[in-house]
């Protein structure tokens, strides 16, 4: 009884505060309506629609009228012979990207940090940042032109050295390397910016102390730069590991062809093919939901681990 009254008191005070704020700043409350509606309609409403995964969708009955089928769609996916290849392909591509792509921007930033502030540094930064602005379609076009079986630059160069031509995009085993290394080419300069900023924020007295102690450049990197970068590295690593299952659909889809499909079909492209091209809505939603959930669990786990081990986390 007493507890209830207390609760009511707090509630009244909060609602009073809200009313006062509303009266005074009604214009601010008015302008947030369109963006909030945007999030409700285009982000939260789809989450509701995801019940599709537990139904047998019927166009005439609509999402809510269609019959419930429980976990049937998930079961279908787990029993599907495509299940393990899809999960494996997804994890392999993004795992490879993480292992190869994560250290490159750090190394680039460490090296750039050593060359002072002259024109050379600015030139390297300007040029390596530029590919970030190339669109996915153009990036894939460039890859295809360079690796084309007959006239592609790579094969012209191979022939020049007396080697046989290779149909790079037709070799399933080369797909992952092509995807990963072109990604590194495109984003390393961009990703290095954050590390460069973190390096610039390291206490200068640490460098002076290192100098007095007679540290070489390499020792300075190992004992001052890298420890200084560690919090940034942890956070970026969390974000990257957390998005392992969320690997982008856009580039992989464009790089796909019947020959490399064995390695290039991932969960996201499968959802698109099954869902939008074959109009198998319920099943595709279940597959997508499975992917999103794994991803959420991964992110929360990695973040928790990082919090416990290093005290840096994203929330």
């Amino acid at each position: 009884m007493k507890h209830q009254m207390l609760n009511g008191g707090v509630k009244r005070r909060v609602s009073e505060e809200a009313r006062r704020s509303l009266r005074k700043h009604w214009q601010l409350y008015l302008i947030v309506i369109p963006p909030v509606l945007f999030f409700l309609i285009f982000k939260y409403y789809p989450m509701l629609n995801a019940v599709l995964a537990f139904k047998d969708y019927n166009v005439i009955k609509g999402i809510w009228g269609s019959p419930w089928v429980g976990f049937k769609n998930f079961q279908l996916f787990f029993d599907n012979p495509m299940f393990w290849p899809l999960v494996k392909n997804t994890i392999y591509v993004s795992g490879y990207l993480l292992l190869a792509g994560f250290p490159v921007p750090i190394l680039l930033a460490l090296m750039l940090n050593e060359v002072g502030s002259g024109r050379f540094k600015r030139l390297v930064q300007l040029v390596t940042f530029a590919p970030y602005f190339i669109s996915t379609v153009v990036m894939v076009s460039i890859i295809m032109l360079f690796l084309a079986p007959r006239l592609g630059f790579a094969n012209v160069a191979l022939n020049f050295f007396g080697l046989d031509s290779i149909n790079f995009l037709g070799e399933a085993s080369m797909f992952r390397s092509i995807y990963v290394w072109s990604d590194i080419w495109q984003t390393a300069g961009y990703s290095a910016v954050i590390y460069l900023a973190a390096l610039a924020g390291i206490d200068p007295t640490l460098y002076e102390a290192a100098k007095v102690d007679g540290a070489s450049r390499f020792q300075k990197i190992v004992h001052v730069d890298i420890p200084g970068l560690l919090p940034t590295i942890t956070i970026i690593l969390i974000l990257n590991v957390g998005s392992v299952m969320a690997i982008g659909f856009e580039k992989i889809y464009l790089l796909q062809n019947p020959l490399n499909m064995v390695h290039s079909e991932i969960i996201a492209t499968y959802v698109y093919r099954i869902g939008l091209l074959n109009a198998n809505y319920s099943f595709a939603t279940a597959v997508g939901l499975f992917n999103s959930l794994i991803n959420l669990v991964l992110l929360v786990t990695v973040n928790g681990l990082a919090k416990r081990l290093t005290k840096s986390s994203i929330w």
Partner: peptide, 17 residues
């Protein structure tokens, strides 16, 4: 707002909206 960065309804449900 931030939660939408972590989780989404997915391709098909968004398409339906």
């Amino acid at each position: 707002i931030t939660f939408t960065m972590l989780f989404s309804g997915g391709l098909i449900p968004t398409y339906m909206v």
